[in-house]
Design a protein around this nucleic acid. Structure first.
Lengths: 110, 110
DNA sequence: TCCATATATCATGATTAATTGATATATTTA
DNA sequence: TAAATATATCAATTAATCATGATATATGGA
């Protein structure tokens, strides 16, 4: 994870449809979702969805896997890890009380 | 933290100077940094830096505090918390092994 | 009050991104 | 192999963003 990877990731997440897609894939977890399923759920046209998925893919935030003529997309949790780590690098100026709540927040119930 | 707050935050972080600024302020922690200090450190012109700080401020990612004629900026850790929580909401589809490494990554050493 | 310092705002030109209609590619089924 | 389905690519228009020069505002000190 270098600076330009992080820029690409944040740019990818800074668009409403793509943010929705990514959060949907985070929720879906290891099961992922089909491209068509995603487009239907979010009511986004086919080519727009394809373009937006390509941006997420290019940023490394999602992976995909062909299944016949469908394509299944997954949130890439390793990429998430890298991105958040990059953002929080050397955080807090030595004051854990600032940093800890941030960590707690993503300590999801799963 | 709603969808449009998150969009604003990611858009703010998707620009090289602003990402540098934010990471610098994360490192600085509670001490923060003066606007001028930041501009000098990152070698960015005065009005460009001011505009970029305004974007971060508007996104809620940083706070500021006037000190005489200088203005001190701070990373807003509550906003970070909200943003990461929003992104990871209902994560992993019930598989903690996917989520845990993400949490571990930002468990900084401070 | 006048000047210097620190920061913010405004207008503009240049670059970049987003959506869309049309079309192409890949895969499965008949 | 032809048709149908699922997804990707292309070209073009519109819209958003960025850095910059110029200028304005706010604070502190002489």
């Amino acid at each position: 994870m270098d600076n330009s990877d992080a820029i690409a990731s944040f740019a990818a997440l800074s668009q409403p449809t793509r943010l929705d897609v990514f959060r949907l894939l985070v929720k879906a977890g290891a099961q992922g979702m089909l491209s068509g399923e995603i487009g239907e759920r979010l009511d986004v046209r086919q080519n727009t969805m394809s373009a937006n998925l390509a941006v997420l893919l290019n940023a490394g935030l999602v992976r995909n896997e062909r299944q016949g003529r469908k394509i299944r997309y997954f949130a890439d949790f390793d990429a998430m890890r890298g991105l958040l780590g990059f953002l929080m690098e050397d955080c807090c100026g030595g004051r854990p009380d600032l940093c800890q709540p941030v960590i707690d927040e993503i300590a999801c119930a799963c």
